[in-house]
Structure formats: structure tokens, C-alpha cells
Design a protein around this nucleic acid. Structure first.
Length: 580
DNA sequence: GCCGTTTTCGGCCCGACTGTTTTCAGTCG
């Protein structure tokens, strides 16, 4: 008996839905397969623990049959049938804007188009414009999009999109006819990879706003323009697409919620409204009996209307956020009392200890940890034991001025775990510090076994309290070193070592998926910025969003501790380590 | 395909835009 992982079963159901879409099946049938996939994914149990899948809402006789067959044989005869009836390469056409299942079906049946290249050829020979529902304009657009598709990536890393978004938002705030503006979409939900930018703009004069945007923002091309929206491509290398949504001030919040998504979240919200005889649109909430239209001043008020706690954008996934008990409080930035990982001019940071401390104090933190690089990281001006001592003395001196103000600087270090698994300082040096972070910065191409040996040496050391950016990935650029995360988590649990959620938008390491796992396993997480400048301390909000996406409780976060609790935590040391 | 204090049929989330039509289907978010 071949048993398939739940995830694999979910993927099969989704693939079936995609095939049905291309076959031009009834859209509700397609939705039913997608719904069944999501329902299965959202169920907390593993396949072994689910005795009867039809008991799960959204899974009925038909989809249960498919699931059962997948469990039994590892294959689905329905999927096999679909795969033999249409070429798999047609799936890539779904990525094209303006192209959906119905159009693909026509292209395939009438013109024998099977992939992007054959579609391009069909356009070139002007066959496509002859099809009903297509025209000359569509044909030209398709060719252009396919040409672009050959070079342009589908989605771009959050960090890059954030910087683009910030520069546009700065411009928008200078336009007088804009009354309110906010970013929406997957960027606001803090997804790791983002497709396009969305801005919701409250204004009474959309035309004037459009005009000013076109004057002030570096626009490469206008894709669409109307009373309620404008879509443009930017002049940056990737020609990132930006949607501007214009809305009357009273509808700002409902529109912001609508375009923040996710799509799945919105569907659930509307179903919920429907049960109450209400209708959510992007403009208002309408009470069906009276016709009364409600609008809101804040998203908090919007959720409250539906008896829901405020759901932060990062949590709007269309599943677990609706199952939260009233007792679950999503983490808020104000719950964070400290940042435990940052750099100063002692190594490769841009500001002095004092400047970083003052900036952190202004953020409302009660304490911070200064954690510069250790001696082996020469490119980052890593600290020798002597310079580390000198830094500690400076921190002690600064604390004489900070502690009376209710703020404390702890002396730490971000110590390298060397390629052979040895640590960059001896235990005597480490024992002189308040908080030791260990991290891998070299030899990323080692085997999983070697990497795990290194991480293990660090986790077992009694002075190491935290492992920073545990996978070493850079989103969209570097996969990181090969780490067996489940093993590292078991190790962290046993030794009482904290793992980091590095808030740098280039890293988000651990990712929200691993944060969820960490929470299940009862591991402590520290949300840190790893700031190398004052500005980078702001990344904490991205870390908090990622933590929320992982549905972790505030009590599982190390740096929500009060200073007294943290001092106690330091004193306690790590768990006694069993010898294997 | 799923579901049911409007239960075994007839709904299923909502509205705008585009390109194609001449009143609308398909796609998108």
C-alpha cells in the first residue's frame, strides 16, 4: 500500500482542479476540488488520524473517492484520465494575464496550441484573431506578454518590492488630492514573494490623482485607466506592475480590506456575511433586508462588526484565522519589548552602541542586546576577545546612564560556528557575556551531515542561547545551507536553545511555515532585526507579521519578556545536556 | 462537486474592466 502525504494529496486535488479549468468544466465543480484541497490542508490532523474525510466540511462523496484512491494506490485515475486527454504543457498558459481555462480550451481545440511557443506562433500567423472571443488586440497583447514572460520572473522578493513600494508611497503622500493612502495586496500580507503592488487611495478626484501619479512616479507604461483604478508598469528593470485603486473616503476601509485579500480570506468573509443576511463589497457592507450600507473608520471596526478580533493582514490566509478562539491575541508590535540581535561600529554596523540604544529606546523597547560579529568573520571586522572585553566595558559605562531611565543594554555577540563545528570563542570568553548568539556564515555548500554537526555543537554549548537565521537563506537569491530543520528543532527543544525569526525582509529566517512547526513543538522564538543601521530596526514589524503568519503565541516569543523576566532567563542558563 | 431551520434541487462571493461585442463572456483581484 502506497500512502501519500497529506500535502501530496492536496497537490493532486489542486492539479485536478487546474485540469478541469482548462477543460472548461463547470466553475463550481472546479471550485469544489479547490475547496476540498483547502479543507484537507486546514485540518490539523495527519492522514493517519482522519478516519472519515467526508466528515470534513467541503469534502463530499466525489472528492473523498479521489482522496481514498490516492491513499490506497498513490495515484488518481481521474487525474490520469485528465492528463491523457490534454497536454500538461497547457498549464503554463494559465499564467498569462487575460487567459483562463475557457480561452485555453478554445486555443487548444481550434488551433492545437499546446504551450507558450505554439501560442506565439499561432499569434504570429494571425490565426488567433480569427477565433470568436479573440481579436487583433488580444493577439498583439499575447505576443508581447509571451516575449516578456521569457525574461521576466513571475514574482519578486519582498525586500525589493518593499523598497519600491516605500518610494512610491512617499510620492503619493505629497499629492494634495489624496486624502488617505495605504498599500494592500500580498505586500501588505507580507508574502515572501510578491507579484505586483497595490495602493488604495481615498480621493474625491481620481482624475487629478491619476494625472499627478503619471507626472511624479517613474511609469514605463499605462496598462489600464478608469474611474476606479489605474494599472501601470514601472520603469525599473522588472517593469513591476502597480495598481492604484481610487475610492471615496467613506469606502476606504472596506476597499483596503478587499484588496488586501487574500482572495480566500475574502471568500470566507463574504460567506460569513451572507449567513448574517449581509453582503460585503469593496465599497460597503450592505444589510440585505433594510438596504442599509455600512462603512467603517478602521479595519478593527470592520472585523468587530462581524464579531471577529482584529486579524492582521499577514494572517488573512482564508483558513486558520477564522478558527482562532477569542483568547488568541495576534502578536502586536507593542508586545515586543526588545531586539536581541544588532550590530554596531565595533563590527560592520553603521552606528555606535549609544546611537543604536537611543534609537531602540525611542521605539519603546525596555532592553536590547548588542551582538557584533566574532573574530573569524574578518570581512565584517569581527571582534577579538580583547575588543569584545572593551565593548563590554563601554556597555557597562553606558548602562550607568540608561538603567536609571528604565532601559538596559545587554552585552552579547553573534558568534561564528566554524566549518569544523568549533565555536569562535572559548567558554571562558562566552561566560563573560549576557547573551550568546551562534550562527553559520561560511561553508554553505557542506553536506547536511556537516551542517547538522555544526548546529549541534552550537546548540549543545551551555552558553549559546540562540541560533540566528537558522537556514541561512536569502529570499529569491540563495537557498541557504542544507539543514534538517526537524532535527534542529528537536535539538533546540532538548537544550532549551532559542531559534531566531530574523526579520530582515531578505531573510525571514525562520519562515512562517517553520514558525508554525516551532509553535507546535513548544520551542522559543526570538524575533530580531539583525539591524546594521538604525533604519533597519524598523524591520521588526515584518518579523512580527511573519510570526503572525505562523500563528505563534506571544508567550512563545523570547523578546516579549519584560526586562526582569529576561534577566531571569539569562541567569537560568540552558537545560542540562544529556550525552548521547 | 458540495450542501441543506428557505434540505434532494438550485444555489454556490462580489464587482470592475477588457475586448469583444452591440448586450456580454471571460478574467481578475
Amino acid at each position: 500500500m502506497t500512502s501519500l502525504h497529506k500535502k501530496a494529496i492536496v497537490q493532486h486535488l489542486e492539479l485536478i482542479a487546474t485540469y478541469l479549468e482548462i477543460k472548461g468544466e463547470n466553475s463550481f465543480k472546479i471550485a469544489a476540488y479547490r475547496k476540498a484541497a483547502q479543507a484537507l490542508e486546514n485540518d490539523d490532523r495527519s492522514m493517519a488520524l482522519i478516519d472519515d474525510v467526508t466528515k470534513i466540511a467541503g469534502i463530499g462523496k466525489g472528492t473523498a473517492q479521489v482522496i481514498l484512491e490516492l491513499q490506497k494506490t498513490g495515484e488518481s485515475s481521474l487525474l490520469r484520465e485528465l492528463q491523457s486527454s490534454i497536454p500538461a504543457s497547457l498549464l503554463q498558459l494559465l499564467k498569462l494575464p487575460g487567459v483562463g481555462g475557457k480561452k485555453i480550451a478554445k486555443l487548444y481545440q481550434e488551433l492545437h496550441v499546446v504551450d507558450l511557443e505554439s501560442l506565439y506562433e499561432a499569434c504570429q500567423s494571425e490565426q488567433v484573431q480569427k477565433l470568436p472571443g479573440f481579436g487583433k488586440k488580444t493577439e498583439e497583447k499575447l505576443m508581447k506578454v509571451i516575449e516578456e514572460h521569457r525574461v521576466k520572473p513571475d514574482r519578486l522578493p519582498l525586500a525589493y518590492m518593499l523598497s519600491l513600494s516605500e518610494s512610491i508611497e512617499r510620492i503619493l503622500t505629497t499629492i494634495p488630492s489624496i486624502l488617505r493612502v495605504a498599500t494592500a495586496g500580498s505586500l501588505r500580507r507580507c508574502e515572501e514573494m510578491v507579484k505586483d503592488l497595490d495602493f488604495v487611495i481615498a480621493t474625491l478626484d481620481p482624475k487629478a490623482v491619476s494625472q499627478e501619479i503619471l507626472e511624479k512616479v517613474a511609469v514605463h507604461e499605462v496598462i489600464g485607466q478608469g474611474e476606479t483604478k489605474m494599472t501601470v508598469l514601472l520603469t525599473d528593470d522588472d517593469h513591476v506592475s502597480v495598481d492604484f485603486r481610487f475610492v471615496k473616503p467613506e469606502s476606504f476601509i472596506t476597499t483596503l480590506h478587499h484588496f488586501t485579500g487574500s482572495k480566500e480570506h475574502n471568500v470566507r468573509m463574504r460567506q460569513l456575511a451572507k449567513q448574517r443576511n449581509e453582503k460585503i463589497s469593496e465599497y460597503h457592507v450592505e444589510q440585505e433586508e433594510t438596504g442599509e450600507q455600512l462603512t467603517f473608520d478602521t479595519e478593527e471596526a470592520f472585523f468587530k462588526h462581524f464579531n471577529l478580533p482584529y486579524i492582521p493582514p499577514a494572517m488573512r490566509l482564508g483558513n486558520r484565522e477564522f478558527d482562532l478562539s477569542q483568547a488568541f491575541n495576534p502578536l502586536q508590535i507593542k508586545d515586543v519589548r526588545s531586539d536581541l540581535h544588532m550590530h554596531t561600529t565595533y563590527s560592520d554596523g553603521a552606528f555606535t552602541i549609544e546611537e543604536m540604544a537611543i534609537a531602540a529606546q525611542k521605539k519603546g523597547y525596555e532592553y536590547i542586546c548588542i551582538t557584533d560579529h566574532s573574530k573569524s568573520l574578518r570581512v565584517a571586522n569581527g571582534l577579538s576577545s580583547e575588543r569584545l572585553k572593551k565593548q563590554r566595558q563601554e556597555i557597562d559605562r553606558l548602562n550607568e546612564q540608561f538603567i536609571p531611565q528604565g532601559f538596559k543594554i545587554f552585552a552579547g555577540v553573534e558568534m561564528d560556528i566554524l566549518p569544523d563545528g568549533s565555536l569562535d570563542y572559548d567558554d571562558e570568553t562566552l561566560s563573560s557575556l549576557d547573551f550568546v548568539i551562534a550562527a553559520i556564515h561560511s561553508s554553505f555548500n557542506q553536506s547536511e551531515e556537516q551542517i547538522m554537526h555544526r548546529l549541534k555543537q552550537a546548540a549543545m554549548n551551555p552558553f549559546v542561547r540562540l541560533i540566528a537565521h537558522p537556514t541561512g537563506r536569502i529570499i529569491g537569491r540563495r537557498a541557504g545551507y542544507p539543514v534538517n530543520m526537524e532535527e534542529l528543532m528537536r535539538l533546540a527543544k532538548r537544550t532549551g536553545t532559542t531559534l531566531e525569526l530574523n526579520s530582515n525582509p531578505n531573510r525571514l529566517d525562520l519562515s512562517s511555515t517553520w514558525i508554525r512547526k516551532a509553535e507546535e513543538m513548544g520551542i522559543k522564538i526570538a524575533i530580531n532585526t539583525d539591524a546594521h543601521s538604525i533604519k533597519m530596526l524598523d524591520d521588526m514589524s515584518i518579523g512580527v507579521a511573519t510570526a503572525n503568519k505562523g500563528f505563534i503565541k506571544s508567550s512563545s516569543i523570547l523578546n516579549t519578556m519584560t526586562r526582569a523576566e529576561f534577566e531571569n532567563f539569562i541567569k537560568q542558563g540552558t537545560n542540562t545536556i544529556e550525552v548521547e
